[in-house]
Design a protein around this nucleic acid. Sequence first.
DNA 1: GCCGATTTGTCCGTATGTATC
DNA 2: CGATACATACGGACAAATCGG
Lengths: 239, 239
Amino acid sequence: MRNIYYDIYEDLRDKILDGVYAYQTYIPSESRLTKMYECSHNTIRKSISVLMLHGFVQPVRGKGVLVIYRPERRANFVLGDIETFKEAAARNGLVAQTRTLLFEHVRADAHLAECTGFMPEDELIHLERVRIFDGKALIRDESFFLASALSGLTAEIAEDSVYAYAEGVLHMKIVTSNRTVNVDFATARDRAVMDLLDFDMLAVVTNHTFNEQGVMFESTQSRHRPDFFTFHDTAVRGY
Amino acid sequence: MRNIYYDIYEDLRDKILDGVYAYQTYIPSESRLTKMYECSHNTIRKSISVLMLHGFVQPVRGKGVLVIYRPERRANFVLGDIETFKEAAARNGLVAQTRTLLFEHVRADAHLAECTGFMPEDELIHLERVRIFDGKALIRDESFFLASALSGLTAEIAEDSVYAYAEGVLHMKIVTSNRTVNVDFATARDRAVMDLLDFDMLAVVTNHTFNEQGVMFESTQSRHRPDFFTFHDTAVRGY
DNA sequence: GCCGATTTGTCCGTATGTATC
DNA sequence: CGATACATACGGACAAATCGG
């Protein structure tokens, strides 16, 4: 048993995904939902705010809570949420695979600290991985992890999933992630290890991830072949 | 006088931006903040949740609310918020200008409805604009607005700011925006009206914007020259 | 290891304001 | 005008995590 508000959020979200509550229709009112789920009105409001922040609904004062989500126009890669490579691949039903090209311990110097956002002298694990879909290397990740936050990390674990290890074994909770999307020229290294065809530019996602302790433990640059890249996001003005 | 929680949010945010509350330090506790601002603890919690969703802080249970925002690594164009072209340009201190290339009324057919997300038979305003920075045409916007939601819109107004007109004159409130980032090949049209140099690919932001009534009134494709494009976003896991 | 103080997280119930119909 | 629906704010209770003695 978890949080009440989160269970309600998931239930409402699934009903929207299944079309029980259709696009441009209203979900039941707050007062009805409090009776349906037998909880307080504040708890319902919390659930609805999560639905709103994920772009599923738009509350309209005096009228109701309108569904503004349409299943058909959904992105095929990254969502406005933190998602593991394995999670994203599984959700899209792709045959995915990771190859680790580099695994080394380094100490951050001034330049590296500037690039990654870590502090000089931080002990880091430098990781280079290629993500393979249906035999084609489409994504190249260059990551730096804070060694003190990921003790025991090995190349074999990285080959599987760093996040699964951090959450499952180390019981770390991943919370906030700042991401920046850019478009950049492909480097010689990109061409050497990825299946780039004739593409000379890549979509680059740079992200800094914080755990529940508020420590930044990851700085990753993810370089995607453009034809397989999509980034989705929901913004709410003033909220 | 507006909302208490929002005023507190702005005050705390500004103190973080000004360095009063520095990176990796804790802001005052909930109980202290309730005394400082003379309000209830729930109101403080709401303010902090907004700070968190904007990537400024990370609450840590049993310890406090940690500042995780660093001013230096801030993106130079779009933020994880809904922002007007004019707002973004002003914030970056750029000499910006808009040229309207096309302004026409159209009725959505099946194909256009599929592309834009509007309904067939919807009356739309079709707008093509080029955004100019320091004399260089770097962004091409192709927009469709729901005519019924933007009555009175003219080419002259569009040259200035559609959002300013919608919010200022029509008192519409822009609320939710779903955005997708892609990388696409430059078209002949792109090359004709933009200063593309040798770039043959563009960063493409497709967004669907809803007003407070929950009606989608805008569908825009914004095509950016890659060297001037940055998209920033903050994600919070499970929230 | 335990206890108590502090701090954030969840949930409840109520009251009042504002917009819609 | 009244009923309904969402929005804001208050105050209280308890849980969970942290930290120091």
